[in-house]
Design a protein around this nucleic acid. Structure first.
Lengths: 267, 267
DNA sequence: CCATCTTTGTGCACGCGTTCACAAAGACAT
DNA sequence: ATGTCTTTGTGAACGCGTGCACAAAGATGG
């Protein structure tokens, strides 16, 4: 999964474990599907299968919310949809700003899902003056000079960063200063934020690298390649004093500076 | 973080914990930045700060790879870049196919990052005949009829699903049948795959909902709203027998069938 | 009203991941 | 060569999350 929680130790809000919170949206999605098919009740076994989790885990998760099931019967679908929605804060409207309307930002803006579950795209913001006023997904792009004003006027507390990595921290700082307390970061950078601000990151590059790791493991079951993989790079680990600071130039030809690489993938 | 691992219990490949594997790309990114600035060595403390983790955790992570540091000095940047790259399987070329060239798929194809770290977009695939042949990000879109052929010819083992949720499982099945063993799923669905296939998911909707949960917690510190939140929906939890199956019609006006909602956001 | 059967809710144990804290290793100075 | 100082590598403890397995709750049928 492309999600990665950030160093905030999970807060443990009202005793609901973070791992459980992360699964609630999964349950909600499965329950919504059942609701649309007018299924009145569902057992933990069925729902767990639909959500791709263990049934015991599901029951324990629900137990943190209270006892909403009926023994011998299961869970009332509609009631559970409401309870989870309420728990997740989806019964209210969350205005969201998207900063950085490049390929990805535009794609995010285009997905109608924002509106469908309590999230509303309050504004699209980009630093490029050429973008200003141009409608993307029906919403006119505003210039980043007005960022603070937009946040304040619409009472935005959730921001999505889809900018190049080089400016992500600066954008983040401005968002936080303006009052945003939750950030979803698509830029390939570690954001540092003050306490009380939540950051979640979506990083395609990291996900692919994790997959590559496992893929390599699946493919390469041939033993004996640990030592000296033939085309090794250069330096042995423990033979180089600190005085030996004369650098031999950066190895292969990685190119430009890292800072302004396009969002999501670079490294 | 928008990533979510799937039910595969992590395999524990050669003793490297899954949690460590997930952090290696983070370290690699920080190290690459240092490398570009020609920094020769780095201490665990500095590198940990750059990667946004604890220094003890970083040292333990590296200890799983072997002892690549020098006491009293730190780690050799270039050497560590190579070792981690090798461990992640980034020293080889990974052809990747992207299935579903809508807004998101096009955005993914457009990010040059694929090429920069061992990943290469081998093909873009879409089911819409109108898309076939049209170049997206310089790569011509191919029709999904040829999916199996493309996978086989290019030896693709990693697939990215950016289709609507309704067809994601079908696409997944075809990819797996054709030989793909790692899947990055952007569609808001739980994919079921046979053993030996890795699935990671990126789900914007889930990330936002998790943020909303914490956001609600931050905002609402006013006590006493647990019981009966005024505009409650309907049914009490435990008063409805199983014979009472006469459904009262699906509540509020959620609209279309869930299946073909646009990728990433819907639920 | 009682017996049976289904399904929830949870006590308990286990394993993974994180963190602390320190000994060992090596660089550097004299 | 010896001592000091820095930084790694890791043993050990702790806490969270997971899964088992079962008792309690309630529905259903006679």
């Amino acid at each position: 999964m492309a999600t990665g929680r950030t160093h905030r130790p999970a807060t443990r809000s009202r005793g609901i474990p973070e791992a459980t919170v992360a699964r609630l949206p999964l349950y909600l999605r499965a329950l919504t599907a059942l609701s649309e098919r007018s299924v009145p009740t569902v057992s933990s076994e069925e729902l767990a299968a639909a959500a791709g989790v263990n049934s015991a885990k599901l029951r324990k998760d629900f137990s943190y919310l209270g006892s909403y099931g009926t023994r011998g019967v299961g869970y009332d679908v509609e009631y559970l949809v409401y309870q989870i929605s309420r728990e997740l804060g989806l019964t209210q409207d969350w205005p969201v700003v998207i900063v950085g309307i490049g390929n990805l930002g535009a794609a995010l803006a285009g997905y109608g899902g924002f509106a469908s579950r309590g999230f509303r795209v309050a504004a699209l913001i980009d630093a490029d003056p050429a973008m200003t006023g141009r409608p993307v997904a029906g919403i006119p792009v505003q210039h980043s000079d007005d960022l603070e004003k937009i946040i304040a006027e619409d009472g935005v507390s959730i921001g999505v960063i889809a900018t190049p990595a080089g400016v992500a921290q600066a954008v983040c700082d401005r968002l936080v200063a303006a009052g945003v307390t939750s950030i979803l970061n698509f830029a390939p950078t570690v954001l540092s934020v003050p306490d009380g601000v939540d950051v979640r990151k979506v990083d395609l590059s990291i996900e692919l690298q994790i997959l590559a790791f496992h893929e390599q493991r699946k493919a390469g079951e041939e033993p004996g390649e640990e030592t000296a993989p033939a085309a090794a790079p250069a330096a042995p680990p423990a033979a180089r004093t600190a005085t030996d600071r004369a650098r031999a130039g950066v190895e292969g030809g990685r190119k430009g500076p890292d800072g302004d690489a396009p969002a999501v993938m670079p490294a």
